[in-house]
Design a protein around this nucleic acid. Structure first.
Length: 563
RNA sequence: GCGCCUGUAGCUCAGCCGGAUAGAGCAACUGCCUUCUAAGCAGUAGGCCCCGCGUUCGAGUCGCGGCAGGCGUGCCA
């Protein structure tokens, strides 16, 4: 639960502020300057925390930044702090270098917390729902669903690590036009199967996939031609009722294979059957946010900053998708009392975010409780060539096709290896490659190397020292310091990933840490060193293994002990 | 037309609420295994950070105006 790195930052801020106050008391500097949050210097050779206090204060105090910085530096009291040195550099930066006490505390923390290292309690147990994928249940899942699945699942894990009570949810659109068309499509194939291709014109906007024919054939297998003389709507509903659960079953299987398990599949039909959609629309009307026009019921979105109003109930009496979704989100916040709901959506849905916020405000829910992760599209390539279709099926590549070819670890790592707002290029050639070009192996290899090293040391009778009993001051090479810094930064990365809804940060940090370890490995021998140094490096390695394992765990990627 | 997103090395992308000499990986070139896993490491080379103006002690980062690409703007979902 600790976050030593941010504790150190706060301490640096405080130490400099106190030194400044001393300089004021000494009559060297005028009063009036405000504290500044230190930041990590871009170049690690400058130290661990840098403050631009003197630069920011220069104008207020009417003194040159370097003069201010030097006056502060001369009065900074490092005894008993995490810091070993304070230096002035550049235009007037005050650079602090962490000392042994910090690193000893760090390794002790990691050793004590083990698999909990990196976690925090930002969430205080507040209930948060992450809704993701929510793919149309009338067909196979797409690559977009594949990316959304990883983002949602990883984000949920990250939030969970931050002390939120997280619920993973899949919204199942098992009602409405799409399902109707699903039934009509299967029905058309059913009739064509029994009476010949020319006997029935396939609906133009129907689902053309081969799987529709398969459902029709399966239905015919079970029921023969007994449905041919039934009324259209009876037939179609029977087809949908027959095929939908099977398709949902397949989606769940694919998701499970992908390492994704939901807390709940929420059925849209529940909202209709219970009258909740109508109740929600009535609520909007009661609150005076709707009007009738052209036989339809409209929501006055323009009252809440949108550029146009939205239809809630069509003139044919059916509710729009938007209306149902408002009801669904009301259910999340009001009936189920989630503190925050996060929707992972394709960027092509960005137009909804404003409308949703407006709708939440209109029903009396703070719009800030609804947050969106908008993800850009996926471009699939194979060794530089764009891939659109599966060679095997001749159709757009599905999640299932992808998992047939790409190991789950690689798929999960790749889909989270870019910021959500960036287009993601997924190189299938790279994803299956088992070498260091492939970042997932790079990280896993670092973990496996650590495990191997720790096994060898254990065989020689060396166990990681309890509670940081090693002499950390011996860890003084740049490689050791870089690795320590990466280990220290992990809790803050998790916190930022949760706050900013950027699960990609975990990938980035893992790659950074793995790189630091590989450099350490090449430069610093553990086996065969003098015992105090060996023990200090052993403690470092044990901590590094813990951090890498915890990070991979958040991603749902395995941490192999041998490769 | 209006709105949102993106524009950084040949390619794919980082750049953490404005900070020091703009980074990583790939591709190219040069090195490193009798030693804890070479699935690794070190080095060289590669940049009008799309353009212009502005704010600031300081701009890849903030503001305004352009340019280019993507998406949205349905009584579709």
């Amino acid at each position: 639960m600790s976050n030593l790195i941010s504790a150190a930052r706060e301490q640096w801020k405080e130490l400099l502020l106190r030194a400044y106050e001393q300089a004021v008391a000494d009559g060297v500097l005028p009063s009036g300057a405000a504290a500044v949050d230190p930041e990590p210097p871009r170049d690690p050779s400058h130290g661990d925390w840098a403050s631009s206090f003197a630069l920011a204060a220069a104008k207020t105090l009417g003194k040159p930044p370097r003069m201010i910085a030097e006056a502060v530096r001369d009065r900074v009291e490092l005894t008993g702090s995490f810091f070993a040195t304070c230096a002035v550099a550049g235009a007037g930066f005050l650079n602090g270098r962490l000392g042994t006490s910090f690193f000893a505390a760090l390794l002790a923390d990691i050793s004590r917390e083990g698999e909990a290292y990196g976690r925090n309690d930002l969430g205080h147990g507040k209930p948060v729902m992450v809704e993701f994928v929510s793919a149309n249940p009338t067909g196979p899942m797409t690559l977009g669903n594949a990316r959304g699945g990883v983002l949602g699942d990883t984000l949920a894990s990250v939030l969970s690590a931050c002390g939120y009570k997280v619920s993973r949810e899949f919204y199942l659109n098992d009602a409405g036009h799409q399902v109707d068309m699903f039934g009509r499509s299967i029905d058309a194939r059913y009739i064509q199967l029994l009476r010949g291709e020319d006997a029935y014109v396939f609906p133009e906007d129907g689902y053309h996939g081969e799987y529709i024919r398969e459902f029709a054939a399966a239905f015919a297998e079970q029921h023969g031609d007994s449905f041919l003389d039934k009324p259209d709507d009876v037939r179609r509903e029977a087809m949908a009722a027959f095929a939908l659960p099977q398709n949902v079953r397949r989606m769940k299987d694919d998701l499970a294979r992908y390492g994704i398990v939901y807390d709940r599949f929420f059925h849209e039909t529940e909202l209709h059957n219970s009258g909740y959609v109508k109740e929600t629309i009535d609520l909007l009307t009661e609150r005076g946010h709707t009007y009738e026009k052209d036989g339809a019921l409209w929501f006055e979105a323009t009252k809440f900053g949108c550029d146009k109003d939205e239809v809630m109930q069509k003139s044919n009496g059916f509710f729009t998708y938007f209306a149902v979704d408002i009801a669904y989100h009301r259910n999340k916040f009001v009936e189920r009392a989630f503190d925050t709901a996060i929707d992972v959506l394709g960027a092509d849905h960005h137009g909804h975010t404003l409308r949703f916020a407006a709708a939440m405000e209109a029903i009396g829910v703070d719009p800030a409780r609804l947050r969106f992760v908008l993800m850009q599209l996926v471009h699939l390539t194979r060794d530089g060539e764009v891939v659109r279709m599966s060679k095997r099926t001749g159709r757009a590549i599905t999640l299932s096709d992808l998992l047939d070819e790409i190991p789950v670890d690689a798929a999960r790592f790749f889909f989270n290896n870019r910021q959500t707002g960036s287009h993601l290029e997924f190189d299938m050639g790279l994803a299956v490659r088992q070498d260091s070009d492939n970042p997932v192996y790079y990280v896993q290899y670092a973990h496996a190397r650590l495990c191997s090293l720790l096994r060898e040391l254990a065989a020689e009778g060396f166990a990681p020292p309890e509670g940081g009993a090693a002499d950390v001051s011996l860890l003084s090479t740049p490689q050791e310091r870089e690795l320590l810094a990466a280990l220290a930064a992990f809790p803050e990365e998790i916190a930022l990933a949760a706050q900013e809804l950027e699960p990609f940060r975990i990938n980035r940090h893992l790659i950074k840490t793995a790189a630091a370890y590989h450099r350490f490995y090449n430069e610093c021998r553990v086996k065969g060193s003098d015992k105090p140094l060996l023990l200090a490096r052993l403690a470092l390695c044990a901590s590094a293994r813990t951090m890498l394992r915890n990070g991979l765990g958040l991603l749902g990627v395995s941490a192999p002990e041998k490769m």
